[in-house]
Structures are given as structure tokens and as C-alpha cells.
Computed example of a mutant assay.
Amino acid sequence: MLNEIAFNTLSKEALEQLSKGAFLSVKHGDQENTMTIGWGTIGVIWGKPIFVVAVRYSRYTYDLMEQTNDFTVSFPLNGQLKKELGLCGKTSGRDQDKFKEYDITAVPGKNVESPMIEECDLHYECKVVYKQAMEPATLDQGIKDKSYSNKDYHIMYYGEIVGCYKK
């Protein structure tokens, strides 16, 4: 059972887990996908609780994000789903249904169209309020060299947190 909580109740735990991986899920029409993310932030912008996620242009998730206005981020906080996080970070939803292939369960969002991952402990539902393409010319050269040697940059999606749930 999911209990609604304030967005910042478990933000410390969410941010600690983020470096180990979380699931970014999105749905457009009958197409659903999830991918592993290791970068993001939770905060307050424009007086709203915001979750910012970074998605590379080359990702199938980017294609879906550009066609919809919401996403979810699901966190396994108790050490579960390590294998699935690894697999979802290495394979593309263009080629397979990750939910079916890796035996993870997509459950409908309560306030958004995008699904949450049932096996996770913490979920953020977000509505996109702003997106911003990275400007490579303004990026620190060390970061550019380390993370973007192939020039596959990110677009940042700012999602207003419209629901936060703990299992």
C-alpha cells in the first residue's frame, strides 16, 4: 500500500539512493518505458517542489518525454532491484519491453499518466513545468571531457512534484 508523504520527508534517502540508481518512467499513449538514472536533484523552484532529471537525447525515454508532460521517479531504498537497475541502464526500450523482460511491475500513477515501479519503496510523480537543453559552451571543461566525450548531452526536465508516496 502506498501512503502519501511530503516530498521532502525522504529526500535525504532518495538522494543517497540516486547515486546507486533509480527508475525514471514515462508513458505516451500505449508506449511505456523505464530507464535507470543516477543524476537528479530535488528542491524548491518557483515556490514549487521540483524534481530535476537529466535525459540524453539518444535515449528512447527522451523520445517519449518530448511527447508527454509527466514522469515518475521510483526508488528501491532497501537494496532490492540492483540487477534490474543495471539492466535498465544498459538496454533500450526501443528494442524491448523492460517491464516484461526484467519482471518489474508498472503500476498506474495517481496524478500522472506515467507508471511507477511497484517493487520500489519511494515514488515521485512529476508534471513537466520546464525543460532546458544543456549549452555545451558553458559547461566546465572537466565535466565535458569526463561525461560528454561523445557529445551526447542531456536535456534537463524540471518536474513539479504532484505526488510523493512511500510503500
Rank of each mutant, 00 (worst) to 15 (best):
D95P: 03
E101D: 09
H123V: 03
E160A: 05
G21K: 07
P49T: 07
T41P: 07
I161H: 03
G79I: 07
I143M: 13
F51N: 06
D30E: 13
L64T: 06
Q17E: 14
L64M: 10
P115T: 01
P136N: 08
S92M: 04
L139I: 15
M35W: 10
A106W: 05
M65L: 15
D30K: 11
D121S: 12
G159S: 05
L2F: 10
I50W: 08
E4G: 02
G86S: 08
V112K: 00
P108K: 06
L77K: 09
E135C: 11
G21D: 05
E135A: 12
Q17L: 14
T138W: 10
D140Q: 07
A106L: 07
E32K: 13
E4D: 07
L139C: 12
E119V: 07
D97S: 06
D70W: 02
Q132Y: 13
N3Q: 14
S149D: 12
D63L: 01
C88L: 13
V73N: 00
Y62E: 02
S114G: 02
Q80G: 12
L139G: 03
E160Y: 12
K20W: 10
H123E: 02
H123D: 04
C164P: 07
A54G: 14
D70T: 03
R59I: 04
E101I: 02
T41L: 13
K12R: 15
Y57Q: 04
